[in-house]
Structure formats: structure tokens, C-alpha cells
């Protein structure tokens, strides 16, 4: 096992984690402010990817594609919030789960109807397609480095938005007491639509960025959605800082586990069995991590007991 390979895998884990963060940030924000569990967050991720693939196919510009993913997902988010989600805030979680599950069916089948069942492809832009040489002679794809950069920028942007702007003050106020800020004259339903659209736009961005590495297809959002749930459960629901820490933890655990466990098992058993057992265990590793975190801290790493 070479050092270079190890660092490469760590970077892959970081890239994966950062993308999970962009996905999970919206989910945790929506839960923190509106108290809504949104299973359809993965559909917004898918919408972002499809919008990006379509625009990239028409114009050939990757940046335009990214802008399209943000716009399409934000618009879809705002429409869904006004048409459906708004009626669910006062309902219990069961109703929210079901209604958003219904939204997944609608979005997935609608997309299949519009685009067909075959995956679309979104190419990485030329100016990011080659590898970059990192210190120590490591060659790493520029595009993946770019994703890490975008993810960290989103984290910083969210931090500034929430701690430094008027909108951020309102979001924090909405988290702690929604009646009070409504009484102070803030249009709470507009704020909710805005927060939901913001979360949706982030999910769409994540979908477009990941869509260029993997393929763009119906159902692509669901595995990521569940990982994002794991992330926000580990981090503590409603906490953006928790989401950041947990997504990096989950990204690194998943990637490094898949890489290291078979190697570790190979030290004590024959390679074929080690590969089998290692990869089977690695696929469960983040759930085990989640279980451990919950045993130690039932409300997540940065969660507040409600």
C-alpha cells in the first residue's frame, strides 16, 4: 500500500464528504427552521443534475449548466413549498414523510417521462478535465479538487449568511421562536419559501457537480439522500456545523473503509475472503458509526436535546 494511494483515497473521501455537506446543509436547515422532514430533497438533487445535463447539452457551457442547476432546483423547491410543503408544517412527521415520499414518486416518474430511462451524461469542462500535480508528486483530477473547493466555499458562504446577514438573523430567529418573529413583522411564509428554495438550490448544485463524475439518471438522489440523513443524524439535526463535521466524517469513513478494510483483513486471512468480508463490512461502516454516535450522544454530535 503506497502513501500516494492513501492520500488519493483521503482526497476522494474529502470530496465525497464535501458533496454530502452541500446536500445535508439544506436538509438540516429546513428541519431546523421549519421542523420539516423532507424525503424529496433527493429529487431536488436529481432535478439539478438533469437541468445541468440539459443546458450543458444545449450550450456546451459548464458554468451555464451549474447556473441552470441552481435555478431549476431553487424554482422547483419554491413551487413545491408553496403548493405542498407549506400545508405540512403543522402536521406530524408521519404526514410529512408520506407527502414527501409521494413527491419522490411524482418527481422520479415525471423525470422518467420527460427524459426516458437512459442515463444522461454531463462532461467535466475542458479547463478542469486534466490532473493537477499536488505537492509530493500526487496527480489528482482537477475537477474533484474543484468540487472540494466549491463545497468549502458553500460552507463558508452559509456560515457568513447565517451569522452576518439580516436573512441569517431571521433564519436563526425562526429556528428558536417562529411566533415571535412573525409578531415582529417578518413575513414568515416568505422566509420559509426562501429557506426551502435555498436548500433546494444547494441540493441541485450538488446534483450537477456529482452528475459530471457519475451519470445523470432517475433515482440518483436516493442513495445520497439517505447518506445525508445519516450525516444530519450524526451531526445533530438543525446544526450546520454538525452537518459539516459529520459529512466529512462520513465521507472519509466510507471511502477509507472501503479501501483499508480489505487490506486490513488480508493480513489475517486469505485475500479472496478478506476482499469479501472487507467490502461487506465497509458498506455497513457508516451505519455502525451512526449507531455508535447515537449510543454516546442520542441527539447527535452538535444537536440540542429538544
Amino acid at each position: 500500500m503506497s502513501m500516494i494511494l492513501l492520500i488519493e483515497q483521503a482526497l476522494n473521501g474529502l470530496q465525497f464528504g464535501v458533496m454530502l455537506f452541500v446536500m445535508a446543509a439544506g436538509l438540516t436547515l429546513v428541519f431546523g427552521v421549519m421542523g420539516l422532514i423532507n424525503l424529496a430533497h433527493g429529487s431536488l438533487y436529481m432535478i439539478g443534475a438533469f437541468a445541468a445535463a440539459t443546458v450543458a447539452g444545449l450550450t456546451g457551457s459548464f458554468l451555464l449548466a451549474l447556473a441552470a442547476s441552481l435555478a431549476a432546483a431553487a424554482a422547483a423547491g419554491a413551487i413545491v413549498e408553496i403548493a405542498v410543503i407549506r400545508r405540512l408544517y403543522a402536521r406530524d412527521h408521519l404526514d410529512q414523510v408520506l407527502a414527501t415520499f409521494a413527491l419522490i414518486l411524482i418527481f422520479s416518474e415525471g423525470t422518467r417521462w420527460l427524459f426516458g430511462s437512459f442515463p444522461l451524461f454531463l462532461d467535466t469542462p475542458d479547463w478542469l478535465s486534466g490532473p493537477v500535480e499536488l505537492p509530493g508528486g500526487i496527480l489528482y483530477p482537477a475537477y474533484r479538487l474543484g468540487i472540494i473547493g466549491v463545497g468549502l466555499a458553500v460552507a463558508l458562504g452559509l456560515y457568513l449568511l447565517i451569522s452576518r446577514t439580516r436573512l441569517g438573523i431571521r433564519i436563526r430567529a425562526g429556528e428558536s421562536d417562529r411566533e415571535m418573529i412573525a409578531a415582529l413583522g417578518v413575513d414568515i411564509s416568505k422566509l420559509y419559501t426562501l429557506v426551502f428554495a435555498l436548500g433546494a438550490a444547494l441540493a441541485g448544485l450538488a446534483g450537477a457537480l456529482v452528475g459530471a463524475i457519475q451519470s445523470v439518471q432517475v433515482g440518483m438522489g436516493e442513495p445520497v439522500l439517505i447518506l445525508a440523513f445519516v450525516v444530519i443524524v450524526i451531526g445533530g439535526i438543525g446544526s450546520i456545523k454538525g452537518a459539516l463535521v459529520a459529512s466529512l466524517l462520513v465521507g472519509l469513513t466510507d471511502t477509507m473503509g472501503g479501501f483499508l478494510l480489505p487490506i486490513a483483513f488480508a493480513q489475517v486471512m486469505e485475500p479472496a475472503n478478506a476482499m469479501l468480508l472487507g467490502s461487506a463490512l465497509a458498506s455497513m461502516l457508516i451505519y455502525i458509526l451512526m449507531a455508535v454516535v447515537l449510543i454516546v450522544r442520542p441527539s447527535g454530535l452538535f444537536g440540542v436535546r429538544s
Binding site: F101, A102, I104, E109
Partner: peptide, 15 residues
């Protein structure tokens, strides 16, 4: 695309 209609129906039941 029957699941589309199933989704709409389910949404109606929940709401």
C-alpha cells in the same frame, strides 16, 4: 408511469 398517479393520489390522501 403509473407511479406518478400513485404519488398524486397519495399526496391527496395525506393532505
Amino acid at each position: 408511469y403509473w407511479q406518478l398517479f400513485l404519488g398524486l393520489l397519495l399526496l391527496g390522501v395525506v393532505l
